[in-house]
Nucleic acid binder design. Structure first.
Lengths: 342, 342
DNA sequence: CTGATCTGCACAATCGTTTGTTCTATATTA
DNA sequence: TAATATAGAACAAACGATTGTGCAGATCAG
């Protein structure tokens, strides 16, 4: 219960018999620059070590306007897709002594806005956001503030801001094309949150695949409105009761496919005998599912790392926010959930 | 590119024509206490709103010694088990305007220690740690500092510190007992990181189940040394080449069981026909696996929430760290991965 | 009319660091 | 010897907020 008082620069200064200025300069490695003698320098360093000095980042940040802290806003950290991104950002950050403040927006734009304000009040050096994706005015305002910002996973064409996203269009195009190659004609799409770039791009891929194979798009086969499991369940329920029943389902997320499987099971149907399925997001468990799932894999680890790198360069160059966009390729992972029709 | 200068109390004070003291008192809701007139109070509030004032949490924290920030250290945020905990902590925190600084210790004690120092330098009000679990001296030191601390998932009998853990002993006991009831005799255990409370308790449950059913423990059936997927794969490989082959495997984590399934598949074996399996950690996908997996479910959401509550009460009571320990019950979720022998 | 009480607010110190400038010896130069 | 240069370090003002105390003027009691 020592309740150790905090060790300050002043404490060390008194101990060594110099001024607090000198201690600061020694400890920030500016001995040479300010001609502190070697003797003093060593004495200070020794004292600091012995007394267990730990700089107060609040005071430092207040003075320097740099906190070495970045804000990370994510719609659902319990989703492995996002937590993988978060992990890689954290790992990069710790390498350079930065910390990340994590906010979970719970897929709610208002909470996202609240988070931004909170993080700004905490003086983060920059922000990485996986936006809910419906609106972007609040993101525009961040930029006006001059706060470095990188968007990840979802982007806004209208917003000139650095971003890192997957090639959702290509991913969807390949997946749906694969269905066509396997002779499917009636391909449903359980989509995620509407009007988000992620969803729009996937839907565009879905449509273009139809175009490429000269097939009409049956609008009634596009269902759903969120990336969650429940939506997958409901969407599949609707699709499976249609007649004729679609022969294939393209699920816009890992959670959607999980929900869809639930519904498929309930209806007593088998994958891929009765219905084929491809899911966005490859997961560690994908290959161990009842029917190993064919998926569209995204480079999540890379996305986090790249986003952090971009943010860092923005922070260093103070404001030169080049609105560069990075698009990461996806990969179709072939497993057993698609049946070849004849 | 407005590069908006930060609005300070002084700015508002000038605008309204009062002192910065008054502004502070109004904005922190102390108008009554310090008899600020209604007219002044409103004027200040209006100005603050119009000017878009956002308090500088660094300055505030420096002065008040409270940052409304807590540190969270987790061995692997990409593991759904931990990210679920993290999510619930964040959700609770945001309700009271607190933020969490996330650190991923990557299952490395040294990184855990580094994280602690970093978080202390950032003046967090308290710490929630899922410890790597091998050592605890650095945790003891935190307590000596007087910094509120709650441990989650893994605990140390020697450390008098609040903790929230699952009833790992009971969970393992039930799982292994269930194997026995299904007439299994040769039950293997792929364990996680040795000498962690989580692992020790589960092994104790494993042994006691044997005792209760009057069966000897075959030490060669206890393999493994980490909670990762790779360990599950290797552990299962070893077990499956033994002869006679064990009829059941108890996996100490979700990742271990995933790895084990990989090995089982490679050996051309079927679950549960050739080998039965129960895994710790219930996951959203558990029921959709090739064979729906019987699991030991933990109350992860609750754990995070409770840990946060305890931490908050410690923070408020400043130092009265009652070393209360919370043990959450586990639940055996019966599915299809265990076969009844005859 | 005088002293006491109350109203409404401002002063100034403080938190721990950083940093532009100043100061004092000593060493060097002319 | 006097003027100047240099080394080595201290002063003091920030950064933005909080807070114990002080100080006017208005109101009240007697």
């Amino acid at each position: 219960m020592a309740q150790n008082k905090q060790i300050t620069l002043d404490n060390i200064a008194h101990q060594v018999g110099v001024s607090c200025t000198t201690v600061s300069r020694v400890l920030t490695g500016q001995s040479k620059k300010y001609r502190i003698s070697d003797r003093t320098t060593e004495a200070v360093q020794d004292a600091a070590r012995e007394m267990g000095y730990v700089p107060d980042q609040l005071a430092r940040g207040l003075r320097t306007k740099r906190t070495n802290t970045i804000g990370l806003i994510i719609p659902d950290i319990s989703n492995p897709f996002f937590s993988t991104i978060a992990r890689n950002i954290e790992i990069q950050a710790r390498k350079i002594g930065s910390s990340i403040i994590l906010s979970d927006s719970q897929e709610d734009t208002q909470l996202e806005i609240d988070s931004i304000r909170l993080l700004q009040s905490r003086k983060v050096d920059g922000l990485i956001i996986c936006p809910v994706g419906e609106e972007y005015l609040h993101l525009k305002q961040i930029q006006d503030t001059g706060l470095p910002l990188v968007i990840i996973d979802r982007y806004f064409p209208e917003l000139d801001c650095a971003y890192v996203v997957s090639d959702n269009y290509q991913g969807a195009l390949e997946a749906v094309s694969y269905f066509f190659k396997m002779k499917h004609k009636s391909i449903a799409f359980i989509q995620g949150k509407a009007n988000t770039s992620v969803n729009d791009d996937r839907i565009r891929g879905y449509r273009d695949a139809h175009k490429q194979f000269d097939q009409p798009v049956d609008e009634s086969l596009i269902v759903g409105d969120s990336f969650g499991k429940r939506n997958g369940y409901i969407g599949a329920k609707i699709l499976l009761t249609k007649s004729p029943r679609p022969t294939a389902i393209f699920a816009a997320s890992n959670l959607i496919s999980l929900g869809a499987m639930s519904a498929i099971q309930e209806e007593g149907l088998k994958i891929p005998e009765d219905i084929s399925i491809i899911s966005f997001d490859d997961q560690p468990y994908s290959e161990y599912l009842a029917t190993p799932m064919t998926t569209v894999a995204q480079q999540t680890s890379e996305a986090g790392e790249i986003a952090f790198r971009i943010l860092q360069s923005q922070i260093k160059q103070e404001g030169t926010h080049s609105g560069e966009g990075i698009v990461l390729p996806t990969e179709l992972v072939y497993r057993k959930s698609v049946r070849k029709l004849d």
